[in-house]
Amino acid sequence: MEYIKGFTFGWLARKGDFEKIEAKQSLKLLKERTNSNYVIFALAALQDTAHSTKIDYTDSHMVDDDELVGMIEYARSLDLKVIIKPTVNVKDGTWRAHINFFDIDVPCEPRWRDWFRNYTAYQLHYARIAERMNCEMFIVGCEMVQTERREREWRKLIDDVRSVYKGLITYNTDKYQEGHVKWWDAVDVISSSGYYPIDDWDAQLDRIEGIIKPYNKPFFFAEAGCPSRTGSSLVPNDWSLIGNANLQEQEEYYKEMFMKTSVKEWISGFGLWDWSANLYDKEKAVLDSGYGVFEKPSEKIIKQFYTLK
């Protein structure tokens, strides 16, 4: 598999957002300023609570199908390869890793079978689009930690996706969870979220390598990055951390991450987090404490790394 020099684009984009000229301008800037060769379109369906079985992927919180297709076509015109990543969020703010149900069915309680039926319908909807648009890869889930023990259901889901999509399939497990997924043999590519502390990359990379080696499959970090915020380099996964904008700390994190991973031949790339469809004004970059890298020192670090890869 070729090295994925990727970025996640348009996270939490709503209906109409991909039709705006700003979105296309943003994607063009992503290509020009980072030298990415892949874009990951991450979609965010909603369920009411972590214990709800209904998944809404048709309301105004999602870009519609025509918008997505149009943006995929535009990405192609920029010579970007495309990965589709249908994700689910919880409306009440609970992190999706906590979506969970009883392992034994109980009357009047929500059931795994109902959730997986609806989740599979959601995945298949976008897998068909991915197939029609010849997308290079499809990510069947992201950081669904409590669901991962349901091996039989995940295998069935992947088989169902394969029935409509012929490209590469992966699943994006969360940081530290690489060894807990027992069905890596069912996917084509292994991936995880690489939000590891700046001072812990060596230990974590050694651990991950030992886990994935027996599968003999490509691996990439489907997410990785760090907010430009004081303290974030030690907890890069904590988007809610309180701290002042600190562009240098983000820059140092990217330098360290790329230095440690570049010598590991088994790592086949990144889907960095993240690039907005509606960028902040460049004059405000110095005040931005989020994951974005537009007009920040990290942007140049990424471009240099991706250019040399």
Rank of each mutant, 00 (worst) to 15 (best):
I84W: 07
L80D: 04
D103I: 14
T49Y: 13
L68Q: 00
I99M: 05
K20H: 14
L46P: 06
V69S: 11
T34I: 14
K28H: 06
T94Y: 06
S60M: 13
F9D: 01
L46G: 06
E73C: 02
E19K: 07
H51M: 03
S26C: 04
R33H: 12
N37D: 15
H61V: 02
Y57S: 04
R96Q: 15
S60C: 08
T8W: 10
G70K: 05
F41M: 04
N89Q: 12
N35T: 10
D103P: 14
I83G: 00
A97V: 00
F41D: 00
D17F: 13
V90L: 09
K91Y: 05
M71F: 03
T53N: 05
R76W: 10
D65V: 13
G93N: 06
K24Y: 09
A45Y: 05
E19R: 09
L30N: 00
A44K: 08
I40V: 09
A50M: 12
D59S: 12
H51C: 02
D79F: 11
A97G: 14
Q47E: 11
E19N: 15
I72Y: 10
G10D: 11
E73D: 09
L43K: 02
R96F: 06
S52D: 10
K31M: 05
F18R: 02
L78G: 06
V69R: 15
R14H: 15
A23V: 01
T53E: 07
R14N: 14
R111W: 01
E109I: 09
F102S: 10
N100K: 06
P110L: 10
A45N: 08
S77H: 09
V69I: 15
D59F: 06
T34K: 07
E22L: 14
Y38S: 03
G93Q: 04
D56H: 09
V69E: 13
M71N: 02
N35L: 12
L29S: 13
D65E: 14
Y74S: 00
I21N: 06
M62D: 05
K15P: 07
T34Q: 09
I83Y: 03
K91I: 02
V82Q: 05
L80P: 01
E73R: 04
F9M: 05
L80E: 05
N100A: 07
F9Y: 15
W112K: 13
V88K: 02
L27I: 08
D64N: 15
H61N: 06
K24Q: 10
S52R: 07
E67P: 03
N37L: 12
R111N: 03
E19P: 00
N100I: 05
R111C: 03
F9Q: 02
D65G: 11
